[in-house]
């Protein structure tokens, strides 16, 4: 038998199909009123969504998700660009890849570990505040107020995911024609001028990739707020994905499914164009 390719694709299709089944299952569940309070769930149409939109947690989780996502995409992109610019001008290859690894290592270690470290580092007496006070700098009360908690969370996300943006911007910069950069150098253009006039304008794809990935990584962040907040019930750290889990553990199954549908729609709106018009085109040169 020559076409064993069809057999070889079965596991991938089966498990990817199982995932699609869960997505469709969510849509179906979200039209019911299934919860711990209901003995025999029945079809209620969009009532679950109406219930969800009226919830306080839905409103704050919307705010937090927007704040975290915009915060990370904006800061991560800007820092990623600057870090990549910095690394680009480091002439030593070994040093450059070493530094790049340092920016990326937070992505490799377990996020439960990151959460443990930051929980203590943001402690008002023994963490970074101790160092800031020693240096006579303002020492904010990081996880003390709800606004500072958001700031802290964005800071942790920036620490964790800026390496991603740096990686893709550095790859774009490395792809810019070397002769153009050399010509600019001979015309006595400074490093900053080369960065802003030549490298950055030629890094559109790096921008698309890092924006899409920063958005998706921020959108799905779960472990760190979960550990920092003690569980998925903390109102100050509630995000969309946390709220899906929160509704599930409080046994509002249909509401949880409806929330999952909302998350899926938002994520898919970024993933599908990125995959089909970005990844596929670049990789397969179609």
């Amino acid at each position: 038998m020559k076409n064993q390719g069809y057999l070889m694709v079965i596991p991938t299709l089966f498990f990817a199909g199982l995932l699609l089944v869960t997505v469709i299952w969510n849509v179906w569940l979200s039209f019911l009123n299934s919860s711990i309070l209901v003995h025999k769930p029945k079809f209620v149409g969009l009532a679950t969504y109406q219930y969800l939109f009226s919830q306080y947690f839905f409103k704050i989780s919307t705010t937090h998700t927007i704040v975290f996502t915009i915060g990370l995409v904006a800061i991560g992109n800007v820092l990623g660009l600057l870090f990549a610019g910095l690394l680009y001008f480091i002439p030593n290859n070994v040093q450059r890849s070493l530094y790049l690894s340092v920016f990326i290592y937070p992505l490799a270690i377990a996020s439960s570990t990151s959460a443990l470290i930051w929980e203590w580092l943001l402690n008002p007496t023994i963490g970074v505040d101790w160092l800031l006070k020693l240096l006579h700098l303002p020492a904010p009360y990081w996880l003390g107020t709800s606004n500072m908690t958001l700031v802290s969370m964005i800071m942790i996300e920036v620490w964790a995911y800026t390496g991603l943006a740096t990686l893709f911007y550095l790859a774009s910069f490395m792809n810019v024609d070397k002769t153009v950069v050399e010509a600019a150098r001979l015309d006595k253009a400074g490093g900053l001028k080369i960065l802003f006039r030549i490298l950055i304008p030629n890094s559109m794809n790096g921008f698309i990739i890092s924006t899409a990935l920063l958005f998706l990584f921020s959108f799905r962040i779960f472990t760190i707020p979960f550990v920092l907040g003690g569980s998925a019930t903390s109102p100050t750290l509630m995000t969309y994905v946390m709220y899906v889990y929160n509704l599930f553990i409080s046994e509002y199954f249909s509401a949880s499914a409806a929330m999952a549908v909302i998350v899926t729609i938002i994520a898919a709106a970024v993933i599908l164009p990125f995959a089909i018009f970005g990844l596929m085109k670049w990789v397969f040169k179609r």
Binding site: V9, T12, L13, F15, A16, G17, L19, L20, V21, T22, V23, W25, N26, L29, L216, F219, R220, F222, V241, M242, V244, Y245, F248, F253, S256, A257, A260, V263, T264, A267, A268, V270, I271, L272, F274, A275, I276, L279, M280
Partner: peptide
């Protein structure tokens, strides 16, 4: 293309969306 779209969706979709199913 459809296959690629599905595996991309599975890669990037937040795991939490599958909770109840």
């Amino acid at each position: 293309t459809i296959g690629f779209a599905i595996i991309s969706l599975a890669t990037y979709l937040p795991v939490e969306t599958t909770t109840v199913p």
